[in-house]
Write a protein that binds this DNA or RNA. Structure first.
Lengths: 343, 343
DNA sequence: CTGAAAGCGCTAACAG
DNA sequence: CTGTTAGCGCTTTCAG
């Protein structure tokens, strides 16, 4: 039954070895500045010799906190180029650990429940399994943010609270308009004028944000945009169809896409028509996914500063979980453009 | 300070409401068969009315287990097509939850430590933060498996213990040779004879396994393989160079690659030479990444049954964490081939 | 089948 | 600055 060679040492073991009380050891770990220098050193030696590490469960029970952050993961979307999550998760794990938190994964969307029921979140919260959540798809108009707000559950959103002006939770987001502008301006500087936009349906406010960058860049140079925009689902097939139609009806020489997935659709169309991306028609994507990085001849893409996003998210989390909790203002970060062969 | 509207109900609250003792409530939750039917129902009603859920920390402290599984994540490898992890993680989260476990993410490889030091694992173990680990890259010859074995830490490996014949831990793997065979046979049936292999360096036993499938398929039909194999790093650039050299020196009409990343390298070479994948030269990859799914005209790829792998991993975990622990035999699963435009 | 007692390992409060 | 006391919420004895 005993899984480990020996029972791990406890506070009491360390205390005995160092010749102090248990409380002093606890202080040595959590409030070292309270101890006299030599006592502290003696305790730390005992800790090192014994290889002592505080028992999490005991600490969690006592402090009423789990030091765990819940991160819901969406069902894997196959057939899309979405790899953003991956990079973000890595950064989040690292940033969290730096402040003493670990990341607990869970399936946010279990089937068989109404839209306003989020049992996965609820269970985690009520069983005190996590201290807070990080939610990443507020922009899909899903009910998480509202639900969490209502329960006063601590959470930080990656994504602005578009449809909830009086949301009072911390958020971190990337300026989609700046990204769209970046890509469009890049193409204009490459000599393109007829630059098409392929984005998502209008109810995607994230999509509209990115689109605004495209129209801003175009309009500020008095380049007409009429007939050059298309709004579709975020799939390769949709991107392919949309680009085929646009090519036939509006003769663009370049495409700015709201996602790498859509941009891949454009590459499909070009491939089918024997057109060379970057030479005959320029294409840019969004997210700098692995697909963008590996597809020949390379897909120019707007790269989100996900590492920085994670750092800001954790920073907001620290405020939220502090005493007293502090909710900072939303943070908006700037994307960059990674230029590759497709433009 | 109080984060939630009210303090969550405890066992005592439920007991009072149901008019029974705390212990009876505990039994109702953990050993319902011990209770009389009407008592059980009364307790369950009280639980439902109060929205009671056991406090994790308390339960963990008492049972000396965290009900958490540690999953190390490697630093994100940009520029590769590796998306296998993503699908696996999803499946693992779901499978684990079904048996009462959650997945805790951590950075396996922190910098600044010698190869035989794995402080991230050690800390998690000694602080009783996780009950077990799932390790996913035993094939890289990294020291995790040996280290964990030595400490008697419970873990399940996704990947065979290639270099450790007397390893006594459960593992789940996918038959790489079968995958290589599948791809090669498919190409042979499509009429190809000069089929090249691009794989990893010889010290990658996973790579050698996959390669064995290629040579097996070739040899069983008496097709010569001389000069048709190349072993390189797992990067797009290596795949590109290797395929260029092979094309010049051995004139293959098809490439079987040990990874989608290498296959993308081949597509780069074809692109540069104006050759059409699937028409002029056939290409197959390995892992069925998002890249394979989205690149035009689609990359034929060997797909690993990651959902099934996760299920088997969790099954092994259940055995490992049971009383008494049982270590089942290794499980080897069969991959499938997803045929797309590149062949 | 149900209840009472004990204690997991830790830290918040207070006393010395 | 250090030690004592108490108890977080739960489950495992052991009696009734």
């Amino acid at each position: 039954m005993q899984r480990h060679p020996v029972t791990p040492p406890t506070l009491a073991d360390v205390a005995e070895r160092a010749g102090v009380s248990r409380q002093t050891v606890s202080n040595a770990v959590n409030n070292p500045e309270l101890l006299r220098e030599d006592t502290l050193r003696r305790v730390q030696e005992a800790i090192a010799e014994l290889g002592y590490l505080p028992n999490r469960a005991a600490r969690n029970l006592r402090t009423r906190s789990s030091h765990l952050i819940g991160l819901p993961i969406k069902p894997a979307e196959e057939g899309t180029a979405n790899a953003a999550m991956d990079r973000f998760v890595h950064s989040l794990v690292d940033s969290s650990r730096a402040v003493g938190y670990h990341v607990l994964l869970f399936s946010g969307q279990r089937t068989g429940y109404a839209a306003d029921e989020l049992p996965a979140y609820d269970d985690l919260l009520r069983s005190t399994a996590v201290d807070a959540f990080v939610v990443t798809d507020t922009y899909l108009g899903n009910p998480q943010a509202a639900w969490l707000n209502e329960r006063r559950a601590p959470f930080v959103a990656f994504g602005r609270p578009w449809n909830d002006p009086d949301a009072r939770h911390p958020w971190v987001d990337v300026d989609g308009a700046a990204g769209g502008d970046l890509a469009t301006t890049h193409l204009i500087e490459r000599g393109h004028h007829r630059i098409a936009w392929i984005g998502w349906r209008k109810d995607s406010l994230l999509g509209e944000d990115r689109r605004a960058g495209w129209s801003r860049a175009m309009r500020s140079r008095d380049i007409p945009t009429t007939g050059l925009a298309s709004r579709v689902e975020d799939t390769v097939a949709s991107g392919r169809e949309a680009s085929a139609v646009l090519l036939d009806e509006a003769q663009p020489t370049a495409f700015v896409c709201a996602s790498d997935t859509l941009a891949m659709g454009v590459l499909h169309t070009l491939y089918e028509r024997g057109l060379k991306p970057g030479q005959d028609v320029a294409v840019t994507g969004f997210d700098d996914s692995l697909v963008a990085q590996t597809v020949p001849p390379g897909l120019t893409s707007v790269r989100l500063p996900l590492e920085q996003v994670a750092i800001e998210v954790v920073h907001a989390l620290e405020g939220l979980l502090g005493a007293p909790p502090v909710v900072g203002a939303g943070v908006l970060l700037e994307p960059t453009l990674v230029v590759r062969g497709s433009s």
